[in-house]
Design a protein around this nucleic acid. Structure first.
Lengths: 248, 248
DNA sequence: GATCAGTTTGCATGAATTTGCAGGTTTTTT
DNA sequence: AAAAAACCTGCAAATTCATGCAAACTGATC
């Protein structure tokens, strides 16, 4: 087999499988690993793949360049747009924290007059930018992990409110396990919110749909509306629609 | 699985779920926890996530206060240094907001173990940077001007606390008018704090000494300690010392 | 067909990486 | 204060890599 032939084969393999091992290629093509290594080095020089210890990865694999910024920002903006439409003047809105909720805060129309209740510092700061929104911060112990207030006082306060809408930044949702979290205190707060709200709206990127964490917040039936960045007719949601959820 | 592959998987997990546990990852990827730890350490070095005991947190989720230009920063830092010395392990400390208080938060020794109560969002965020400090955020309506929570609920909550120390970021102080403010709601909060605290410490730059605003918070006699950037033997303070205040 | 410069390949050697494990230390939880 | 969990350090085994070198191959020229 010619060198050029071999290299196009390797490139093909990389593009199809996203990754190759030097040892595998060596066996497949029946040349020494040294030769494979030299080929990979050459192709890497030409920028056609990325050489790593033990093999190579396809170019497109390295997509997490801007890890500094919010993950899946575009998706979250799109979710925020849909969610913002649900809020009407005069409403009482209860929200958790999280980056999706922050995007919602940014997406609120500037003339909206409403009252927002929140346990999240970051969300509160974002709401403060809006001239016509009244903010009630729910106080209690501050969780350093979640950056929201947690604890019995906060739960009690939440239950005193009867909000029209409750937006949950969602960590994981699954038809059998329902809405799940990875932090006990956060779960308690969200549970209190779900209990007291007239209408519960879960916001999540599609990637988190059908994933589960360790601690259950509530059953899927307690959620009225599910918002993701995908169009609502996506087959991913049929099970949720069957369970009676509105998908936007 | 290649090392790089594993790391992108980890990064992906972190970005999707905001937080991961080393033990979970170890099971999912089927490598030793040591390897996971090493990966997390590397990714943390690259600034792609934040390593914590037991796992890692996503970068984008962590907020930082982008410090705008603070007036008289050096003076405030010097005040903060003196104030920090008053706080001992195990104390309950109540604070207002304001730039001087923020400097105090930054000046706290990292091994200090104490509980801080605050009405200020920015102060709370700053306290969160400290590993050993428990934070209780006092909730209620959020004042957009003062960036603190105000209102009856907050006042009631403050009066339930019996803090050892209360630090007041001070707007104006004068021997005849006492401690004064220019915002009615803020005055009410500070008044509540002065009423309930064992010991009231007023922090102010010397420039504000012997100035007055429109609304009185309390008389000078209610203040136990006055801290400015000047040495305590400065003649500016003789009247205050005569009134029984400790000047530092 | 023989020759020769240039290229390619495989192999040997030692260096470097990666990984899991044993131990002792630190941190967290109970 | 004790127990559990997580961490760090150093180490050894396995794997992968870099380098130099000689053999094999290529293809043009004599």
């Amino acid at each position: 087999m010619l060198k050029k032939e071999r290299q196009t084969y390797i490139l093909h393999q990389v593009n199809v499988h996203n990754r190759v091992l030097s040892a595998d290629l060596s066996q497949q093509i029946k040349v020494s690993e040294d030769t494979i290594r030299r080929d990979l080095a050459e192709l890497a020089d030409q920028g056609k793949l990325i050489k790593v210890h033990g093999g190579a990865l396809s170019q497109g694999y390295h997509l997490s360049v801007h890890a500094q910024e919010v993950y899946a920002l575009d998706e979250k903006r799109s979710i925020a747009q849909k969610a913002a439409k649900l809020i009407q003047d005069g409403m009482f809105v209860l929200t958790t924290g999280g980056t999706t909720i922050i995007e919602l805060a940014k997406a609120l129309p500037p003339d909206l007059k409403a009252t927002f209740f929140t346990v999240s510092l970051t969300a509160a700061i974002e709401y403060m930018q809006h001239p016509n929104i009244e903010i009630i911060l729910i106080g209690d112990k501050l969780s350093k992990n979640a950056q929201i207030t947690v604890g019995g006082e906060a739960q009690a306060k939440i239950k005193q409110i009867k909000p029209d809408l409750c937006f949950l930044g969602t960590n994981a949702i699954d038809i059998t396990h329902g809405l799940t979290e990875n932090d006990w205190e956060v779960m308690q707060i969200k549970k209190a919110m779900v209990t007291t709200a007239q209408k519960v709206v879960a916001l999540t990127i599609a990637e988190k749909v059908n994933t589960a964490q360790r601690i259950q917040v509530c059953d899927v039936h307690r959620i009225h509306t599910l918002i993701t960045e995908l169009p609502p007719d996506n087959p991913l949601f049929t099970a949720y629609k069957d369970a009676g959820l509105e998908v936007i």
